[in-house]
């Protein structure tokens, strides 16, 4: 058992592995539970149906996250019988729209904050930072009144795109500004000497150079919009306009108990973001801690 032997003097590895394995199981259990519900082909919350007088084995069977029979029926029917495909489509449209609008607006602003000196520069940056502190609930009520009651944008994708895009601006601006600051100015100065205009420099020098930061920012905007629940639940009253999160809640919220649909839908919705997240998390950690140290 080379695995559990300590290689050299120092900490013995065996207890560490026990600890880590314990936490790994704790971490994986809910995930496996939802996977086995999804593949069980049933709507029930229970992993297995207990007989009248269950034995210890039956009891054990009821807590092991492994479906009794494997079936894809929850996946097929959540996509065909239920309006879930439409909700995912809504989410895709809204998140894409948010990303395109939000990142475009943020990168022009971040460029100006990074490259120009102008009155109001510091104040603007600080205002963007402070706006991150506004609590969601304080914003929710006026946004609801403005968007739904004044502008009639309740249950509309456009309304949600506008709100998500603007709320994503401050984070994107800070992130992109940080990256633009690291691009040396020599390139632009050379281009200026050649007679290029500012917009040409921006489009054909800065943006191509900033591709990595742009894609990371875009992915974060996308993920935030994809995972957002409260605003969507408040603004989207009509079932046809639900986003995926609101739809998933619809399956198991209130008196409805369609756990099979929920589990299948949850897997379909979270796999892409989990993969994205694992790929992006190192940027997120550095960005968050850097931001809070500065702030």
């Amino acid at each position: 058992m080379a695995l559990f032997s300590s290689r050299r003097e120092g900490v013995p590895h065996l207890p560490l592995h026990v600890l880590l394995l314990g936490f790994t199981l704790f971490t994986l259990y809910p995930i496996l539970w939802v996977v086995s519900l999804a593949f069980s082909g049933r709507q029930s919350l229970a992993l297995s149906t207990l007989p009248e007088s269950p034995t210890a084995m039956d009891r054990l069977r009821a807590v092991i996250p492994w479906p009794e029979t494997w079936s894809l029926s929850n996946f097929t029917s959540v996509l065909t019988d239920q309006p879930f495909a439409r909700w995912v489509l809504n989410s895709v449209i809204i998140s894409t729209g948010t990303t395109v609008v939000g990142v475009f607006v943020a990168c022009t602003a971040a460029y100006a904050f990074s490259r120009f000196k102008f009155p109001g520069q510091r104040a603007g940056l600080m205002a963007f930072l402070v706006s991150q502190m506004f609590p969601g609930t304080l914003m929710l009520i006026p946004l609801y009144i403005i968007l739904v009651q004044w502008l009639g944008l309740g249950s509309s994708r456009l309304g949600l795109i506008i709100v998500y895009a603007t709320t994503s601006i401050p984070f994107s601006v800070w992130m992109l500004k940080g990256y633009f600051d690291t691009i040396p100015k020599d390139l632009e100065e050379a281009a200026l000497m050649e007679g290029a205009s500012v917009s040409r420099i921006f489009w054909s020098i800065i943006l191509p150079l900033a591709k990595p930061a742009l894609s990371v920012t875009a992915l974060f905007s996308f993920m935030t919009a994809w995972n957002e629940f409260i605003l969507a639940a408040t603004f989207m009253d009509q079932e046809a306009m639900y986003t995926a999160p609101v739809g998933l809640r619809f399956f198991v919220g209130g008196f409805s108990q369609q756990w099979g649909y929920f589990a299948a839908g949850a897997i379909l919705v979270s796999v892409p973001v989990v993969v994205l997240f694992l790929f992006l998390q190192k940027y997120l950690v550095s960005g968050l801690t850097a931001g809070s140290v500065k702030g």
């Binding site: 607006v105 006026p142 946004l143 506008i162 603007t166 601006v173």
Partner: peptide, 17 residues
């Protein structure tokens, strides 16, 4: 360059606030 972001923030973040 800042105008779009600023207008958006003013209308949908600072004004609602």
């Amino acid at each position: 360059y800042i105008l779009p972001a600023l207008v958006g923030m003013l209308l949908l973040v600072f004004f609602p606030f």
